[in-house]
Design a protein around this nucleic acid. Sequence first.
DNA 1: AAGACGTGCAACCGCGCTCTT
DNA 2: GAAGAGCGCGGTTGCACGTCT
Length: 201
Amino acid sequence: MDKSPCNSQDVEVRKGPWTLEEDLILTNYIANHGEGVWNSLAKAAGLKRTGKSCRLRWLNYLRPDLRRGNITPEEQLLIMELHAKLGNSIKKYIHIYIYVWSKIAKHLPGRTDNEIKNYWRTRIKKHTKQTEPFAAGSSETNEDGSSTCQVSSATDQMEAYCPPLYQGDVGAFSGGNIPQELNENYWSMDDLWSMQLLNGD
DNA sequence: AAGACGTGCAACCGCGCTCTT
DNA sequence: GAAGAGCGCGGTTGCACGTCT
């Protein structure tokens, strides 16, 4: 894994913003050799970056088929629809919402999951501010420490709405299998959001 | 004009999944 | 079947830039 930042050979691993030169090296290397095993690619290209970093840079920024610039209204709409359809799934923790950005991104050619994720978050951030009272009042912590809508950190405000169905009886659906009826109830909240977002703009 | 504040985006981190040995 | 390595994903952070006061 890349948990150990320095293996015996490359002691210095560059972090932070990519330089133009690094971009060029990576782009040229991939143009000539194609994408491959990222760790060895990074070494072979002579970049002092982790394979992970190279992959991210390529996928999110350097790929030639990327569309840069503002999200169009059409894309906006599509994101909202897709978010409503596939957006929330219970994957890791039962009551924390995991958004499947990559799946949404697949429906938007030229857009990356990172881009969509950022877009959605900032949008929701805005929205949360507008509807502060609702967001603030929607999450409760039980006395025993378990919360009905467990949220974990900075982003949580925006995700702090609790679908009623979750409260209490969530133990049955671990492992990503979400009953249809749950999903349906669940969307309604999203749909509300989407509506408001659309109308709000 | 300058400092404070807000916003958007690029990049990193941690974790889980998948593939290979 | 187990262990290790690599990959992919979502969450988070930090910085640059724009706007407001």
